Amino acid sequence: MAALKYAGMDDTDSEDELPPGWEERSTKDGWVYFANHDEMKTQWEHPKTGKKKRCAGDLPYGWEQETDEKGQVFYVDHINKRTTYFDPRQAFTVEDVVLKPKRYDGNTANSLPLSV
């Protein structure tokens, strides 16, 4: 098992699993970022996959987003009468895909039919 970890091939159930010392968080508007507690740094890209993610959709039914006196966002589940700092939308994140525009040059064939 230690050899796999040394080779960068940790035995994990998911490629989205975070390394030890990392935490997934979200901004108030639903963008996901990653906190490295060992180095006291944050970043937008997943530390293993390099992908960016965002929370999809609205809060689940019965949930509300609040802000405490320190400005920290927390979530209230009115149905189960509990609060948490974990954004419940993080269970349903989607990859933030950036589409790059295609580049055309003089050798690129036109794939659209010509009008006659």
Score class of each variant (00 low, 15 high):
Ala3Gln: 14
Phe86Val: 13
Thr49Val: 07
Trp44Ile: 13
Gln65Asn: 03
Leu114Asp: 07
Glu45Val: 14
Asp87Ile: 01
Glu15Met: 07
Lys53Cys: 04
Ala35Glu: 15
Val76Phe: 12
Lys81Ile: 08
Gly62Cys: 07
Lys102Asp: 07
Lys81Glu: 14
Pro101Ala: 07
Met9Glu: 08
Asp87Gln: 03
Asp105His: 04
Trp44Asn: 11
Thr12Pro: 01
Thr42Asp: 08
Glu15Asp: 14
Asp38Asn: 14
Asp105Val: 00
Asp105Leu: 00
Arg103Leu: 06
Gly57Gln: 01
Glu69Tyr: 10
Asn110Met: 06
His78Gly: 01
Glu95Ser: 01
Tyr61Cys: 10
Phe74Ser: 07
Glu17Gln: 14
Val73Phe: 03
Tyr75Gly: 04
Gly30Ser: 05
Asn80Tyr: 12
Met1Thr: 05
Asp77Pro: 11
Gly71Leu: 12
Ala2Asn: 12
Glu17Gly: 01
Thr84Met: 04
Trp44Glu: 08
Leu112Gln: 09
Val32Gly: 01
Leu59Arg: 04
Pro47His: 09
Leu4Met: 11
Thr83Gln: 12
Leu18Arg: 03
Ala91Glu: 15
Asp10Pro: 06
Lys28Asn: 05
Glu23Asn: 11
Trp22Cys: 14
Glu64Leu: 06
Val73Ala: 02
Ala2Glu: 15
Trp44His: 08
Asp87Ala: 02
Arg25His: 14
Leu99Val: 10
Gln65Gly: 03
Tyr104Pro: 00
Thr27Val: 04
Gly50Thr: 05
Met9Gly: 00
Glu24Thr: 05
Glu64Met: 06
Pro47Phe: 05
Glu24Tyr: 00
Tyr6Leu: 13
Arg82Tyr: 11
Tyr104Gln: 04
Gln90Tyr: 04
Trp31Thr: 06
Lys100Phe: 01
Arg89Gly: 02
Tyr6Gln: 13
Lys51Ala: 07
Pro47Thr: 09
Pro60Gln: 01
Leu18Pro: 05
Lys53Gln: 07
Met40Ile: 10
Ala3Gly: 07
Thr27Arg: 03
Lys100Arg: 01
Gln72Glu: 12
Ala2Cys: 05
Ala35Arg: 12
Ala7Thr: 10
Leu59Met: 06
Glu23Ala: 15
Gln65Ser: 10
Met1Pro: 03
Thr42Val: 14
Asn107Cys: 00
Gln90Val: 12
Met1Tyr: 09
Leu18Thr: 06
Thr84Trp: 08
Asp96Tyr: 08
Asp16Gly: 02
Gln72Asn: 14
Lys5Gln: 11
Val76Leu: 13
Glu69Leu: 09
Pro47Gln: 08
Asp16Ser: 07
Arg82Trp: 06
Lys48Trp: 05
Pro20Arg: 07
Val32Leu: 04
Thr49Tyr: 11
Lys48Pro: 11
Glu95Ile: 08
Gly106Asn: 10
Arg25Phe: 05
Asp16Tyr: 13
Gly71Gln: 11
Trp31Asn: 07
Leu112Ala: 10
Ser26Glu: 03
Asp11Gly: 04
Tyr104Leu: 10
Arg82Gly: 12
Tyr61Lys: 13
Gly57Asp: 03
Lys5Gly: 02
Val97Ala: 05
Lys81Val: 10
His37Glu: 12
Glu64Lys: 14
Gly50Tyr: 03
Phe86Pro: 03
Thr27Lys: 04
Leu59Lys: 05
Asp16Trp: 13
Asp16Ile: 06
Gly30Glu: 03
Trp31Met: 09
Glu23Asp: 11
Asp68Met: 05
His78Met: 09
Glu66Asn: 12
Tyr85Asp: 04
Ala91Asn: 10
Ser115Ala: 11
Thr42Met: 09
Leu59His: 06
His78Asn: 14
Tyr75His: 07
Pro88Glu: 02
Phe74Lys: 10
Val73Asp: 01
